[in-house]
Design a protein around this nucleic acid. Structure first.
Lengths: 202, 202
DNA sequence: AGGCTCATGTAAACGGTTACATGATTAC
DNA sequence: GTAATCATGTAACCGTTTACATGAGCCT
């Protein structure tokens, strides 16, 4: 429901072509709302058909023509309306945590390795975000409204990456710790013979 | 690609019916991999057709019959294979941050209100997670491998909610701060007459 | 009487991903 | 010569969401 809105938001400042939007998304809104170029082109057609954006072809020599899209008054109205509607907390799908549900002594090492490589990726991201912050958002209190909103997006990214890094460190430490030896009575008893009591879930 | 795997993971400990799985997901894996009951039923059919689970009907009087699914050796193999494959960082879609990209003086109050209500929801979640942690995971070092994995999932949930709460507080504080008055020279100049220099994006 | 829990499903619609397609220019 | 950049798209597929369906028993 919000892909169209993400595009409208990106057109707020000025008109863009589909190609521009695709590149812009990669650096900005795309961090919290990933979108492919195919989606953008198709959605722009729909938005134009619905009268929320106006298309204008810019003829170019030496380069393919561009089709530049601009917000209409109606588009602006739809956008403002959307902003007042309540938002659901993000549903995040974390494959790694699903995998950890299957953790046992047999797969411990491969999961440890995976957490390690994830740690690295998050550290890289954090470094990139920190660099953008230092360069573009020195003192958030002095920013105007629009730029404050963008600052807060970046800020969320930084806090998230820091938290994830800290979690990776905890996870690596915990998984490296030896697992306590299970109670000795189980040693010689065949599995099928042991009484099965209803185990507490969780 | 991982819905089937999330189900296989849930069947690791013991056999479950679709109905059981749906309820179980809500409390466990569903936090990092949300799934509806329709998806579960359909996926169970596919998994059974592929020989990764074995279905058994349990006849009940007074209640509808249950169809209970159990991991096969092949299912276990597929699961173990999947665990060794690398994982992408989660792509999270945060509508609220998209909205903040459109922040201006006209919508500041409604966005402030929305951040406030989101703050509350995250505080509630954190309280629930803390309660589960206190009750089920007193000392993580003493847990066996399987339960350590689950502990780490919960731990991630707690860290995430804490971080989000802190971000909400920052956002509320920043948006409540008065926006600095723009440079006075713009006061009487008509917008069209002002020179338009290429503004720095970001 | 109305709503919840147990228990399973089908069907349509929507949204997103992957693959394929074209073609000129510029940089290495 | 090869790859990347600019610039736009179509088509098939897959995964997810929403709506609809059934029916008994239990609780208030």
């Amino acid at each position: 429901m919000a892909l169209s809105h993400a595009i409208l938001v990106s057109l707020l400042d000025r008109a863009h072509s589909g190609y521009d939007l695709a590149k812009r998304f990669d650096r900005t809104v795309g961090f919290f709302w990933p979108v492919s170029h195919q989606q953008i082109y198709q959605e722009l057609h729909k938005l134009a058909a619905a009268g929320r954006v106006r298309a204008e072809t810019v003829t170019q020599s030496e380069r393919p023509n561009r089709i530049v899209y601009e917000l209409t008054d109606d588009g602006r109205r739809v956008l403002d309306q959307w902003l007042t509607e309540p938002t659901e907390p993000p549903s995040f799908k974390e494959e790694l945590l699903v995998k950890l549900f299957a953790l046992d002594d047999g797969n411990r090492d491969s999961l440890l390795a995976e957490i390690g490589s994830r740690r690295q990726r998050h550290a890289d991201r954090l470094a990139r975000y920190d660099a953008i912050m230092a360069e573009h958002y020195p003192q958030p209190e002095t920013l105007n409204a629009r730029r404050r909103g963008r600052y807060l997006g970046l800020r969320m990214g930084i806090l998230t990456e820091r938290t994830t890094l800290a979690w990776c460190d905890e996870a690596l430490a915990l998984l490296s710790l030896p697992v306590p030896v299970p109670a000795p009575q189980a040693a010689a008893t065949p599995a099928a013979a042991r009484p099965r009591r209803k185990p507490a879930t969780r």
